[in-house]
Simulated assay, not measured.
Amino acid sequence: MSPSGLQLAGGVLAAGAAAGAALATYAACEARAYTVRRVTVPVLPAGHAPLRVLHVSDMHLTPGQTRKRDFVRSLVHLAPDLVVNTGDNLAHMRAVPFALDAFAPLMERPGVFVLGSNDYFDPGVRNPFRYLLPDDGVRHTDGAQLPWGELVSGFVDAGWLDLSNRAGRLRVNGEEIAFAGLDDPHISRDDLAAVGPAPRDADLRLGVVHAPYLRALDRFTEQGYDAIIAGHTHGGQVCLPFYGALTTNCDLEPARVKGLHRHPADSLPGDPGSAWLHVSAGLGTNPFVRFRVACRPETTLMTLVER
């Protein structure tokens, strides 16, 4: 190659390296740009006052993530009437006390929770590009178990309802709310039989699950629940501007990877066998690859209003 050719190739390589470094820096900053989203869900009976529901998901906390912990602690200033935690709180063997500290102010409010796969098992180092490939069905359930029982005890001792394959009820600001929950479908811990018919004497019926697999969403809607709250997807985590998510890490289609939608997707409010669906893009990432692209980490304040 001629000297001029070598110089051109060197310039291209340098430009490519600079662009890659810039993208990596941006993606690392994006993963720490914690955001509060706000949505309004018309799901309450007529004549009922609005209800503020804080949806927190996928914190993936390690002991050293003080900024993330401080952000979660600050959410109490949103004055939620109810907190819904859809799992994947942990990402380290010693994270439980730090997670409970982060949620401590919110645990003074009524709350419910389910767990995700990363509450049960150490996340381990993963190839970040595998997340963008089609799901091969492989689940990493052979690693070290995290002390998830301590996390559950902390939540339950504070008065939060454990909805992992369970149902329960709470009275919140005068509203009688019936819940049904599933353990994580991503690792086949869900028991669909745990979701029975939605109680008709409740003012509001909510389904809660970590991963929004279609079998879980279908079960909640078939049983008459008004809305379903889920996490797991990270909003796609690595998204393309003006295009959106490349994957959901489950069988939910990318068009509903985060935010407020209907289920089934083509249903309208009031259609029998349908419900609102809210999927959180979550607050975290795998602790070894803390990158997000065009998808900021988030928690959502859902204002429930009259239908």
Rank of each mutant, 00 (worst) to 15 (best):
R69Y: 02
G116P: 06
P269I: 04
L75T: 09
D218L: 06
A216Q: 13
G168R: 05
P105I: 07
A19L: 15
S117D: 11
W160N: 03
G224Y: 05
L192K: 01
E108G: 15
V257A: 13
R215C: 13
V96H: 10
Q65G: 03
L301C: 14
H92D: 09
C29E: 10
A91M: 05
L13K: 02
G231H: 07
V12H: 01
Y213I: 03
R292I: 01
R109I: 10
A21S: 12
C250E: 04
V152I: 10
G5D: 10
D88R: 09
R32M: 01
D70T: 11
C29Q: 14
A193I: 01
S74G: 13
M93F: 12
G5Q: 13
R126I: 15
F179Q: 07
A255K: 14
D203H: 14
G137Y: 14
Y34C: 02
T66W: 05
V72Y: 08
L54S: 12
A33K: 08
L214D: 04
E253T: 09
L260Y: 08
R109C: 14
L246H: 13
T221Y: 09
T40E: 10
G143I: 06
S4I: 11
R67L: 12
E306D: 13
I229K: 01
L192C: 00
P185Y: 02
D203S: 14
D81S: 03
V39P: 00
R52F: 04
H232V: 04
L268M: 11
L146I: 11
V72H: 11
L217K: 12
D135M: 11
T248P: 04
G244S: 12
Y213S: 03
L301E: 13
F179T: 04
L146H: 14
T62Q: 04
